Amino acid sequence: MLSNRESARRSRMRKQQRLDDLMNLAAQLKHQNSQIDAQINLATQQYITVESENAILRAQLQELAERLHSVNSVLRMVEEVSGMAMDIPEIPIPLLKPWQLPSTSQPIMANAEIFQF
């Protein structure tokens, strides 16, 4: 009977130790989860900032391409009227069709290395 009591006591101690270990592990995982969540939020904010800057640059690029097109049109008219040959550069195709970047509806592929600061 004494042996059974001792065995039951050891069993309760093992269960308590296992419960304590699991609670510590849960606390560590919650902490890691909150750190990863903060890193994701930071990366998302950086992405939004860069995407906003890119939108501004795309608009400026379009405006400059339109200006260049207008200036080239004026130069062509001057060339026709004056009869003078002018060196009128063509608008580079990339300016007319800037990069097709992924939109927000497309998934963004990432790996864990981007979160290493």
Rank of each mutant, 00 (worst) to 15 (best):
M1R: 10
S7D: 05
S7W: 03
R12P: 01
M13I: 08
R14K: 10
Q16V: 07
L19T: 15
D20S: 12
M23A: 14
N24R: 14
A27F: 05
A27V: 08
Q28C: 03
Q32H: 10
N33S: 12
S34T: 14
S34M: 05
Q39E: 13
I40E: 06
L42P: 01
Q46A: 13
Q46Y: 09
Y47F: 10
I48A: 15
I48C: 05
S52H: 11
E53G: 01
N54S: 02
A55Q: 14
A55R: 12
L57W: 02
R58D: 14
R58I: 13
A59K: 10
L61Q: 11
Q62A: 04
Q62E: 09
A65T: 15
A65S: 12
A65L: 01
H69K: 06
V71N: 01
V71T: 10
N72K: 00
V74A: 01
M77H: 13
V81P: 00
G83Q: 10
P89M: 08
I91T: 15
P94V: 09
L95P: 02
L96A: 09
K97W: 07
Q100W: 04
Q100Y: 08
Q100M: 11
S103Y: 04
P107I: 03
P107A: 04
P107E: 04
I108L: 11
I108G: 00
I108D: 01
M109D: 02
M109T: 08
M109Y: 01
A110P: 00
A110N: 04
N111S: 09
A112R: 11
E113C: 02
F115N: 03
Q116Y: 06
F117Y: 08
